[in-house]
Amino acid sequence: MGALLDRRLIFVTGKGGVGKTTVAAALALAAHRAGRRTLVCEVAAQERLAAAFGMAAEGFREVEVEPGLNAFSVNPEDAIREWLRYQLRSRTLAGLLGGSRIFQYLATAAPGLAEMVTIGKVWELAQLERKTPGSTPYDLVIVDAPATGHGIALLGAPRTFGEIARVGPINRQAEIVDAFVRDPASTAVVAVALAEEMPVTETLELERRVAAELDVRLEHVFANALLANRLSGTEAATLDAALAGGPSDGARAALAASLEAHQTARAQRSQLGRLKRGLGAPVTTLPHLLTHDVGRDGLERLAAKLERDL
């Protein structure tokens, strides 16, 4: 997995609610610990990443978490403005166009334009020769991408946009970005999953879809939030027997809670097995942190596990 951190861009997707932001942040921390100058970037303007590192978001700017580790939040409105400036090489023209009603009609409604400029900005961030004046290049950019369907649409935007604009500057740019995000030497698409029935099914489906729709291989899957299984089968049987023996209400509740945790952990192991058998991509597991707000300590724990395993 050292190879994973050697890419220029890692695109982290997966079903909603599985912990994509946490895993993207932990991956960024692990890459940073491994000596990569790293940027972690979210694209849904949720500004959760900065919060994950315990910092305030600052809009369309690269925010330093610590030297060599930055965070960024892409939103389509700013990305379109920036794109127009580069495109026209003139602030005046960009202002004229950006302020015109025709353009606003097109920009707010044109299918896929938001996705195209978003992935275009991600591409720019991952270049060794940055277009943004005064910016320092990154070794690695990690994208906290939208959930499965929108994530695939985002990765596919350059190709679909290239098809709409068959010739001309948009077409050329779209082809460059498309080639970069689909080149396995530059970009890795990874997924976060939970070891539960539906997330596993969706992850297997995701691997099939990125292959079929984007001709891209899913590089890695992170099975997140695995619970500890403290009991062996024999110990669980001992608990069962104790329950049957008529303990006090309190002891009954405690035994039942422990057995439930055991059942849940076992169900997770069986879903993890199903995930591993069904996938072509390798799987790395991450522990449940037993908290809702992961916090910096939690991120450090996950990053340490990733550093060991990757």
Binding site: L84, Q87, L88, L93, L96, L97, S100, R101, I102, F103, L106, I164, A165, R166, V167, G168, P169, I170, N171
Partner: peptide
């Protein structure tokens, strides 16, 4: 769109490519 719209269209063509506009 008022005066200046012709200029906007010209800029738009430059930014996007003509085929896109035709489509």
């Amino acid at each position: 769109f008022g005066r200046g719209a012709g200029a906007v269209m010209a800029v738009l063509e430059r930014a996007t490519g003509v085929d896109l506009l035709r489509d």
